[in-house]
Design a protein around this nucleic acid. Structure first.
Lengths: 187, 187
DNA sequence: CAGTAATTTCAGTAATTACTGAAACTACAG
DNA sequence: CTGTAGTTTCAGTAATTACTGAAATTACTG
């Protein structure tokens, strides 16, 4: 891990440590951080040199990052190596993260819950359990729909929402007007 | 893991498996699932019997769940044992989860980023890196503020927001009116 | 098509994380 | 106090996950 600026160094190490909390491992976190702050795309060898990781580890980690759509593969003219970079708009990145996390952390459970709710409950204990699953399922569906719609918003609408987003409570002062909109989709 | 209803059984095992994706381990996930569907609070011994776990493992896992504020300790009259239950409102649970995850997954990084941004950048590469950190920091602050405000909402406002939440795009059709509100906090 | 640069796979190993049983602790009851 | 029911701690071990180097594969180049 040679000749990296101390600030960048600290950032990379931090991402490595946070990796486990974020459901990726240290290496994946470090590589992502390195690419994120790099001015230009890097190839696998450059990454393995700068972070002191084996070439094969870098290869596997880059695949993982690609499966999250958090890095993009690029080619430079006249160079056969694969180069990698992160998308440069942070908002893009955040949305990708939201989508992938929903896919991995919510969808499987939602599938299971829906299945369970198709079954007949006989005993009282079963009925109680099913009611609880039902509640969880309903909430998870709402959250899932919410994120779906968020992902469909135009960039400008999204920015608007985020910018005044911390004034959500004020927005709700308008709930009389808003309630009308809500009712159109009867729920 | 004796005499559990197959549906409940499947739910518990699923939570165990998802645990690692959610940043908790199998045991913690299973215990949470068991408590969530249980009609009455359970004590540590009941949990360890029903899930086939050692008593000590249950003790540690319950502490972990308490640190997430996902289970509550209770006492039954005339019984010295500690009993545990999950809060029964799923919305409560979701908000707790949001808050705890922000605390664990976002706050440490936000702290680091803010620190880094206090430093002087000299070289061009440093300046580029700092600009990227700056962008990430700004977005994370917005997300953090968003969730803060969400947590402050009254129960009824929250339900309203969630209920018509999947009509967010429509809400933004009203952005002319809303923009006025946004400007009051000039940003 | 032979040679080479680049990447991927994978079996073995290292590092980390989870779990257990035994011992220590806590708090109450007689 | 002493005994007992309940809980927690912790050192040792099991299980899982991460990482490596060597070999295999891919895809160009001359």
């Amino acid at each position: 891990m040679n000749t990296l600026d101390p600030m960048v160094q600290a950032f990379i190490l931090h991402f490595g440590e946070m990796g486990s909390r974020w459901g990726i491992n240290r290496t994946v976190g470090q590589i992502y951080a390195l690419l994120y702050v790099s001015e230009d795309p890097l190839n696998a060898e450059q990454i393995s040199e700068r972070l002191g990781l084996s070439r094969s580890n870098v290869s596997m980690s880059l695949k993982e990052l690609q499966s999250w759509r958090l890095v993009q593969l690029q080619h430079l003219p006249g160079d056969r190596k694969d180069y990698f970079a992160t998308p440069d708009d942070v908002l893009d990145i955040a949305l990708t993260l939201l989508e992938e996390r929903r896919k991995r952390e919510l969808d499987p459970t939602l599938t299971l819950l829906r299945q369970s709710l198709l079954e007949e409950a006989s005993t009282g204990e079963q009925k109680h359990a099913q009611k609880k699953l039902q509640e969880m399922c309903a909430l998870m569906e709402q959250v899932s729909d919410w994120s779906d719609d968020l992902l469909k918003l135009s960039r400008s609408d999204l920015e608007l929402l985020l910018r005044f987003g911390n004034k959500v409570p004020r927005l709700l002062e308008m709930k009389d007007k808003i309630a009308v909109l809500g009712k159109k989709k009867g729920n």
